[in-house]
Amino acid sequence: MTEIALRIEDLSFSYQTKKALDNLSFSVAAGECTLLLGPNGAGKSTLFSLITRLYDTRAGKIELCGFDVKQQTRQALAKLGVVFQQTTLDLDLTVTQNLRYHAALHGMSRKLANQRIAEELERLNMQERRNEKVRQLNGGHKRRVEIARALLHKPSLLLLDEPTVGLDVPSRQGIVEHVHRLASEQQLAVLWASHLIDEIYPDDHLLILHKGQIKAKGTIPEVLSMTHANSIHSAFKQMTQEGVS
């Protein structure tokens, strides 16, 4: 049986009177890459803030590898690697210093941290940049460092919040390929928020979110047959234009 890395049940969230998420239920299994598609304001960032426990879950349940985010926060967060939409690196520190800081937050010894940092940087072809200050790196390289950082503590679920925004095409492709490889080779579960259709791979799962509700979920053929659309682009358009005058 495939292990479920992320399970969300009946999740709702409101900002005072405005409902941001409405009764969401879905799961992401190990080795599965799920693309969370939705226009701006669909509720993607709210969902990520709830999974990472930046906001409190008031209605519904979120489990990471079987740990309830609300009740067993620390065990749950230990299983999670995150790349946020905005760069969250310290620009005045070097690549290695940034990664060591993250390793310290996860309680790694210096020896283990150095070993993992070398492994992850090697995998992303960033070894030679390890002593450079992050400020000197371009957008694509910064993103690679953030992905390396998110993987240092060997999480079971990787959350990516529009990580390719603002990157050039080769950098974007590099990151998309790398993450898909991680999912298939390391059985990593990936939840990737995006609004770029061309980042989808044929084996990916899709989750279309609009105005806080799941409009479609499943594999690409499942979503296409559900919407009677001939492409993901038109399925997405159809789902997200409902109710728009």
């Binding site: 990472t52 926060t73 996860h106």
Partner: peptide, 10 residues
């Protein structure tokens, strides 16, 4: 956003 990295640590 760098505060998020601190707050999502276990």
């Amino acid at each position: 956003g760098s505060m998020r990295i601190l707050l999502v640590s276990p």
